[in-house]
Simulated scan of single mutants.
Amino acid sequence: MTDLTPHGGSDPADAPLDATDQAVLAEVATMLDDVDPVPADLVERVQFALALDAMYDEVAQMTRMLDDALAVRTDLADAVRTETLTFSAERLTAMVTISASGPGQVRIDGWVTPAGVRRVSLRMQGSDREVTCDESGRFVAAGVREGFVQLIFHPTDTEDDGGLVVTPLFKL
Rank of each mutant, 00 (worst) to 15 (best):
D3M: 05
D3T: 11
D3F: 06
A13I: 02
A13Q: 12
A13W: 13
D14Q: 14
P16W: 10
L17P: 08
L17C: 06
L17T: 10
A26I: 03
A26W: 08
T30F: 00
T30E: 11
D34W: 04
V35P: 00
V38A: 06
V38Y: 11
P39G: 06
P39N: 13
P39V: 11
A40P: 00
L42R: 14
V43I: 08
V43N: 12
V46F: 14
F48K: 11
F48D: 07
A49W: 07
A49F: 08
A49I: 01
L50C: 02
A51T: 13
A51E: 14
A51S: 14
A54M: 12
Y56C: 00
D57R: 12
V59L: 13
V59H: 10
V59G: 02
A60H: 08
Q61W: 04
Q61G: 10
Q61K: 13
Q61H: 08
M62T: 11
T63G: 05
R64D: 05
M65V: 07
M65D: 04
L66P: 01
L66Q: 13
A69D: 12
A69W: 04
L70T: 00
L70F: 02
A71H: 12
V72Q: 10
V72M: 13
T74V: 14
D75M: 07
D75W: 08
L76R: 15
A77C: 02
D78Y: 09
D78E: 13
A79L: 14
A79N: 02
A79C: 01
R81G: 02
E83V: 10
L85D: 11
L85A: 06
S88K: 13
E90S: 08
E90M: 12
R91G: 02
L92C: 15
A94W: 04
T97R: 15
T97V: 15
S101Y: 08
G102W: 04
P103M: 15
V106P: 01
V106W: 08
R107C: 05
G116Y: 04
G116E: 07
G116Q: 07
R118D: 00
R118F: 01
V120Q: 04
S121F: 07
S121R: 11
S121G: 01
R123S: 12
R123L: 13
Q125E: 04
Q125H: 09
Q125C: 03
D128I: 02
D128V: 00
R129S: 09
R129H: 03
E130K: 04
E130M: 08
E130G: 00
D134H: 12
D134K: 14
E135Y: 11
G137K: 14
F139C: 07
A142Y: 12
A142E: 15
G143P: 00
G143K: 12
V144K: 04
R145K: 10
G147F: 06
V149E: 07
Q150W: 01
L151T: 04
I152T: 09
H154K: 09
D157P: 01
T158M: 05
D160E: 12
D160A: 09
D161P: 00
D161M: 05
D161N: 14
L164G: 05
V165Y: 07
V165P: 00
T167G: 06
P168G: 15
